[in-house]
Design a protein around this nucleic acid. Structure first.
Lengths: 125, 125
DNA sequence: CTTGACCTTCACACTGATGTGAGGCTCTGA
DNA sequence: TCAGAGCCTCACATCAGTGTGAAGGTCAAG
């Protein structure tokens, strides 16, 4: 599929799909006329990228973990390809994601407490 | 306290403390010589600002909410000052933070599962 | 009185994710 | 064959920082 269709199907502006390619997150083929040509899995990939970006991960971080994030049950690179170093790197990425989760949870709690304190009437639920 | 001490105590570069003032998030007094003079609560304010920025709130949002965020149990301006609109905005932002947490947790679990599948030896713990 | 640490403003430049527009090529349908 | 939709690249703009440097004021200690 071409960039316009992918954009429509994911809701992500074509501009950003090009940007993600520039950032090495997407790797569309090129048609003879130069147009980008995306496979079906690109839809899920884009959604994955969006989710992670929205969660505050950088493209660099996403680039590092994306290859390992398949659909449910899919393992992309076979086990033999994963060196001890890669595994370590992956573990440290997981730690960073956890740190981010902790930070967000902390602030969610702060904001929730604030809201409860300031509007206990409508927001007690 | 002056800007250097506040910077040391919060770990936030003086440059950013001036920036937050420019953004109307901090309001230090000025000494006779023009030096910024921060009160003790500024330490907590700065940490709060950092946390909220990290959570993806805009400076505009923080500006709206910060006056009401006291220490534990302190609510400065009475509840009536918080408009329903502000509260709604805040609620929707809390929801967004939660969505981010969910997304990250999902992906953390995926990565963990991947790691476990690919290196069941050293990573089973 | 000078030195050095600390403060002031101003200003330019970089990042990352995204918006916007210009100028031009490709393809399809009337 | 021409319009229009869709694609291409290039490039500048924005926001929230962040770094750096210039040019200068303030103050305490030697």
């Amino acid at each position: 599929m071409r960039i316009g269709e992918l954009s429509r199907r994911t809701g992500v502006p074509a501009r950003l799909l090009r940007y993600y390619e520039e950032q090495d997150l997407l790797h569309p083929e090129r048609a003879a006329n130069g147009y980008r040509s995306y496979g079906e899995p690109a839809v899920r990939d884009v959604q994955q990228i969006r989710g992670l970006l929205d969660s505050g991960l950088t493209t660099e971080m996403i680039r590092a973990v994306l290859p390992y994030l398949g659909g449910p049950g899919e393992i992309h690179p076979p086990a033999e390809c994963v060196s001890a170093e890669t595994a370590d790197l992956l573990r440290s990425h997981i730690d960073r994601i956890q740190a981010r989760i902790d930070c967000l949870a902390r602030n969610r709690d702060r904001l929730t407490a604030y809201l409860a304190a300031v509007r206990p009437d409508r927001d007690a639920r």
